[in-house]
Design a protein around this nucleic acid. Structure first.
Lengths: 336, 336
DNA sequence: CTGTTAGCGCCTTCAG
DNA sequence: CTGAAGGCGCTAACAG
């Protein structure tokens, strides 16, 4: 391995001069700089980042913790995050928590020891407070994406869950539906709470009384909605919903599949609207009516805030960026 | 920051003993080990990985270079890679080359200086040889995924492009099509070459003469197929294809959109089959007939080979794992 | 503009 | 089973 000393020797300078050339720091005579640079090329010298990190205590590595890269929403978040990170000279570590506090904790531990400069995280829920506290204790800057956590002050980039939900529900009411079910995520996740609140209030504003037996909390992960759908479908006609609001894309997909398996058709037997688009390519094969979030920007802006925080260029107080969703109306909620 | 010395002092041992406890190396009396471990907990000690890496020359970080995480095929590859990496105690860096040699080269440079232990890469094409040679020169192990590179010997995990293509084309011929167009990726990518070869040979075996003016090479990226589709559609009826083989999912999506914009319907006016599923959730909203690859395993097995190579547990020779695709027949190729 | 000294936190080597 | 000395490759702080 060729080190800074090998370069120094060949160039008849000290290691410090080489260091200055590499980092463009201090002042070096144009002539010596040229010489050093040439020798660096000749010898294919590459600075050792471990040694560098040991000194200056920064790695130029960020950690992205999402629940599942396979969820098209987070796929785009990751792409936005990576793009911005690269642009700013940072690398990005990928982690999938699968909505599990335990996995999240494991990643947090790995983060502490691998010395990343900052963390962009979609927390698994309010219980993540524990993990975020750990980050705070170790002075590792972080930015929350998509989800807030009760009792944690920080920068955050999130969607307008209330507004998106309200528009979806208004739309479905406008389509003539009065019995509307909610299949929601766990209530320890801020997005689920906001969506439920908006669901209830929007119904009430239209003079519809929200019904307990039409509202369910399951996981935001795949393969969870089937039983709920069966239950809803098997209700007596008078009690049965004619529309379902799926609180995220995975739940929506499950719901559609479950209905299909039950021989029900969408939207004739059951209308569906959902938050977050399950399609990676919007508008390709449009079927579901969705509140599509600017997912790419969640990641892009998140990394931007994070780097500002790391490099202390950010404002003193925490920033809270709320991005509005776009409603895309499609077959799943329109009759005929 | 609490260091190994702080622990040593408190425990009345030397830093070496602490080091031995941390790494489970050498021998330490059960009693002292217990004491040290307790103090580590009390003080919330976390080993500094930069210092560690500086000594032992390993980071437990792998780099994944794909063309675009947003492509559902690579999304799954990434998930498989991350799962295996985590299981083996490694972290994974994410990079999107966007099929660009330049971006790929930038990432390779970052890799060299950030000292990752190994690289899992879907090369941008045969021109990546340059970058792979750089990795070889710097003794950084790598495994190719999805694509081989002319003149590079290495471990590789890839799909059976010939077989998948053959089955798709046989299917489309069986549907009565004789004029079949190919919208392929660039011929400097091994998968594109294999798919073209299989396309031509399968046609010939069925007594159909491949036609130059029905075969095109574009990029594997999004938003490229429109002009080709327009050209194909505007051919005189006698020359016009009745089916299109899109060589990857992005091309297929573009093709479907372009046809839609031109007022053509699929499969009535034009049948479509493609390699790689554009749906993140197979079978959710089935439309396209596809050769779906075991994408998750590309990443999972790729990382497995890579770690074996890094830890020198792998066989001397290089491994070449070829995974068969599954054909999913759907509306886009079946009439009425 | 350049060099010297010291040390980042850990692990290897060798002694005991 | 444990410790002392030295070094990994680099840079901060100072000196010239």
């Amino acid at each position: 391995m060729v080190t800074i000393y090998d370069i120094a020797k060949r160039a008849n300078v000290s290691s410090m001069t080489v260091s200055r050339v590499i980092n463009n720091s201090g002042t070096v005579k144009e002539e010596t700089r040229k010489k050093v640079e040439q020798i660096i090329k000749e010898l294919n010298y590459i600075p050792n980042s471990a040694a560098r990190s040991l000194n200056i205590k920064e790695t130029k590595i960020l950690s992205l913790i999402i629940t599942d890269i396979t969820n098209p929403f987070f796929t785009k978040v990751a792409r936005g995050a990576e793009d911005k990170a690269k642009q700013m000279g940072y690398r990005l570590l990928l982690s999938n928590s699968d909505e599990s506090l335990e996995k999240e904790s494991e990643y947090i531990n790995m983060i502490l020891s691998s010395g990343v400069d900052g963390v962009l995280i979609a927390p698994s829920g309010d219980q993540s407070k524990k993990n975020l506290r750990t980050l705070i204790k170790h002075r590792i800057p972080f930015v929350l994406i998509d989800r807030e956590v009760d009792g944690i002050q920080s920068d955050v980039v999130m969607g307008d869950n209330f507004d998106g939900t309200r528009k979806l529900i208004e739309h479905i009411i406008q389509q003539g539906h009065r019995k509307i079910a909610l299949i929601n995520g766990p209530s320890n996740i801020s997005t689920a709470r906001a969506r439920e609140k908006a669901f209830i209030e929007t119904l009430q504003l239209s003079g519809i009384q929200p019904e307990e037996n039409l509202m369910y909390n399951i996981s935001f992960k795949q393969n969870n909605a089937e039983k709920i759908v069966e239950k809803l479908v098997s209700l007596k006609k008078a009690e049965r919903p004619t529309a379902i609001f799926a609180a995220n894309n995975f739940i929506a997909v499950d719901t559609v599949k479950a209905l299909r398996d039950l021989g029900k058709s969408v939207p004739e037997d059951m209308a569906i609207v959902c938050f977050d688009d399950p399609e990676p390519i919007p508008g390709f094969n449009p079927f579901l009516t969705v509140a599509a979030q600017p997912d790419y920007n969640f990641g892009y802006l998140g990394v931007q805030l994070l780097i500002e925080r790391i490099e202390k260029k950010g404002p003193q107080g925490f920033q809270r960026i709320v991005l509005p969703p776009e409603i895309h109306i499609s077959k799943s909620s329109i009759k005929g």
